[in-house]
Write a protein that binds this DNA or RNA. Sequence first.
DNA 1: ACTGGCACTCTGTCCGCGCGAGTGCCAGTC
DNA 2: GACTGGCACTCGCGCGGACAGAGTGCCAGT
Lengths: 340, 340
Amino acid sequence: MSLDDRKLEVLRAIVEDYVETQEPVGSKSLVERHQLGVSPATVRNDMAVLEEEGYIRQPHTSAGRVPTDAGYRLFVDRLSKVKPLSPAERRAIERFLIGAVDLDDVVHRTVRLLAQLTRQVAVVQYPSLARSSVRHLELVPISTTRLMLVMIADTGRVEQRLVELPGPVPADDVTDLRRRVNEKLAGQKLADTPPLVQGLVDDCSPDRRATMACLATVLLETLVERSEERLALAGTANLTRGGVLDFQGTLRPVLEALEEEVILLKLIGDLEPSTTRVRIGDENKIDNLRSASVVSTGYGPGVTIVGGLGVLGPTRMDYPGTIATVRAVARYVGDLLAQN
Amino acid sequence: MSLDDRKLEVLRAIVEDYVETQEPVGSKSLVERHQLGVSPATVRNDMAVLEEEGYIRQPHTSAGRVPTDAGYRLFVDRLSKVKPLSPAERRAIERFLIGAVDLDDVVHRTVRLLAQLTRQVAVVQYPSLARSSVRHLELVPISTTRLMLVMIADTGRVEQRLVELPGPVPADDVTDLRRRVNEKLAGQKLADTPPLVQGLVDDCSPDRRATMACLATVLLETLVERSEERLALAGTANLTRGGVLDFQGTLRPVLEALEEEVILLKLIGDLEPSTTRVRIGDENKIDNLRSASVVSTGYGPGVTIVGGLGVLGPTRMDYPGTIATVRAVARYVGDLLAQN
DNA sequence: ACTGGCACTCTGTCCGCGCGAGTGCCAGTC
DNA sequence: GACTGGCACTCGCGCGGACAGAGTGCCAGT
């Protein structure tokens, strides 16, 4: 049995009402609040069908209906219209992002902005090293046998690592190392560097090889293995919004999930399609987030994507509004990065 | 009326039982669980006095007693013995901190360790810039009119900022700038730098003065104003431990407070006395944290203190254990920093 | 100074009840 | 055939009373 237009309309009404009131919605109140042009009894029949198809369910016999994950899915895919941002929101975004002085600042401002606008938990991934190029590598002597390696990426990220050298290295040698390393690696995509690093060691004169090998190890760690991504998080207090009603009674599992960077990255960091992605309830495949939805998208200067950002909230969330906000913020951040 | 030894013993017993069971403790169960050598009736009299003095209170008439903030205070100051760490905990600390590769890593591992050991929310402040010295300043050309300024502090912190120059500057000039800046500032305490920065501009030849002035502005921001401290946070999920019982029903205010870096810094960042500090309930002067206690201490290589760390939990917390753990972790972190 | 006993108070819980919202179904109507 | 009005039914929820249990304060006695 396929769903005709009115049934879809009923589903949309249920989702909208439920999101707003947080209470199971019944047939009578539904026809009162929306111009469906039919009687409650008819709506009831439609509801029965929608329930059979798995889009809505009753918390208890003889209570109103509540959308299921599948119901939200259908709503997001086919029923919701994009909600344009209010001018006030646009202004808020602009005001908030102006005046950011460096990458850290941009990321922090963005994540707070997102949390504030969506009134949900916001996550912003730092520009991914895997998608960055090396802009410059700097070697700073700390002591005779220690160097600080500083890598500056074109996305603005700066990573540093301490290098323990096998023996004392004179200042001139450091200068030489710095030159060689930069000649070889500057401008390269991080992903392409490993063979080049190996080349660096091979090209070295034997007496310096040990030093270079040391440096190479740390370089590889910094450039590749350690490309473990960084994140910023804000708005956890928003989880307490809907009372304890959302998240089936306890925030525990959600807070736990939010502490795991790996999990968050999986949620927002899957950057393949450049479009906005919505994961509803079970769809995000993480037990702790059974009753949470994630709206995420990629961002970057121009069309390239260097990182992800998104928000997490109860499945019962204002999808159209959230999607619009996430998109808008991502676009503004992209523009901001493009200016650098 | 002063409190004799037995009354203090009763208070200690009440605190210990309440912390453990989370339930108001009555006179009968008290004599059962502790060898007080007197009858419940006697204990009741003592309790009446303790209540009069404000150390305990009854949630409702005819319920057991619960310690007040003042009760916990007295307990912490005079009644609790330091609880030595278990060998397992010592091992956990060592294992956890070994293998940290850089400052970020140290801080993150520490904060997670603290959260795990105390089963509470942990906060670690990055080594304060205000207490650091400049180790090296690096200028990296990004474009002809842009420099990246990277400051490396002796505590391992690395700060970067973008400098917009008034006009194109040739590479040689950058080298010169770098040399001058380092000659003047390297090795100086950050707090002492402002006059030196001014000197840098004054000493400059007129044609380069505009550039140097630009750089100086950013330097000052980076070195002083922007000494806004950084923090790491972990273990928020532990807030949900005692059910919703702690924190009078809602985590909301606590989560909100935890999002405010300023507030957290005030809590753990007051580094004057090098001893461990315990702030109980109202004592921390923040409305949102009325029902929370904070145990914090400073850490640093050797005897100097470069930052603070601590944990936050319900006033009903295991003070002796928490204090011991916080101290131990701070000492280990200090040792770790000293090695650099 | 401590103790045993007693009356009292209060909370939490369980039960039963009635209300109201909401449903499913069915017969009737357009 | 699709929609509607009506009706009986089901449940969750809130309310009030009764009850058990824990804990107290007080007092007289040792």
